[in-house]
């Protein structure tokens, strides 16, 4: 029994210690961001590997999610004779919730895991240590550009996801199910508010981008420098990111739309 309590205590202390390290790491990353504006090429390289290379996944997923929303929405709305509101339903679902949340989950799976593996392997092959000994701070040179690129990429990817999703909904709603295209677009434009809906969605995706990139980079940087350690860290990135995205989504939704 005593051993059980002792191991629980050890686990608790270890978790808090890790949480503390993660926050020190966040502060160090943030301190490295201003210097990047003098060397923005480092961020552009990362925008390509983190953002651009995720576009195809986001496009295809967004299209299918939008098409499913179109189908499901039509089936429900048609019972009330409100199928012309399909555009509003699809666009609000996407810009408020599914766009930021699903694209962040996909981003964690694709870019987050890749970041963790990359940084973890750089650590295990002593590249980060080597950089420190060359008087180059790896947090400023390697970590901060990826962090900033993650924060910039996420809202753009979420916007692409939502835009393609709306198109998918339109393709199914108008092309397959015969919803009037004028009603689809005009109702969508009338009921989707720039600040209330789109702006709040963008805030969500910026927060998700920050949190997912932070988790991914920290897990890589803090990984045990072995192949098993890097593997575990990559799994943790995806799992912790998913929890963080869904938990934060509830909190942000409650704050934004909870009145």
């Amino acid at each position: 029994m005593i051993n059980y309590i002792r191991s629980l205590g050890r686990w608790g202390l270890g978790s808090f210690e890790r949480l503390g390290r993660a926050h020190i790491f966040l502060v160090a990353m943030l301190a490295g961001v201003p210097g990047l504006f003098l060397r923005f090429s480092l961020v552009i390289q990362q925008l390509f590997s983190i953002g651009v290379l995720s576009v195809m996944l986001i496009l295809i997923s967004g299209l299918f999610v939008g098409m499913v929303l179109g189908l499901q929405g039509y089936n429900t709305l048609v019972d009330f004779g409100a199928e012309e509101s399909l555009g509003v339903m699809v666009s609000l679902s996407l810009v408020r919730e599914l766009g930021p949340v699903v694209s962040a989950l996909l981003f964690a799976g694709r870019a987050g895991s890749a970041l963790t593996a990359e940084i973890g392997l750089m650590k295990s092959t002593e590249q980060l240590s080597g950089m420190e000994m060359m008087a180059v701070d790896p947090i400023k040179r390697i970590i901060a550009p990826r962090f900033l690129a993650g924060i910039i990429s996420m809202p753009l990817l979420a916007a692409i996801f939502s835009a393609v999703g709306v198109l998918g909904g339109f393709l199914v709603g108008h092309g397959l199910l015969g919803v009037d295209d004028g009603a689809f677009w005009s109702q969508m434009q009338a009921k989707t508010d720039l600040f209330e809906d789109i702006f709040n969605g963008v805030i969500k995706s910026v927060v998700f981008g920050l949190v997912v990139t932070w988790i991914a980079l920290f897990e890589g940087y803090d990984a045990m420098p072995t192949s098993e350690g890097v593997g575990r860290a990559t799994t943790r990135t995806v799992v912790h990111s998913a929890f963080a995205i869904l938990g934060l989504d509830f909190v942000l939704t409650a704050l934004m739309f909870g009145d």
Partner: peptide, 29 residues
């Protein structure tokens, strides 16, 4: 550290750039 060199057991070369850029790395930085 700019006045200290260190040779790691693994070499610790940056794997995403070629040999030339690795040697140029500290000079460019």
């Amino acid at each position: 550290r700019k006045r200290m060199g260190m040779l790691f057991q693994s070499g610790a070369l940056l794997t995403d750039i070629d040999v030339f850029d690795n040697v140029a790395f500290p000079l460019r930085e």
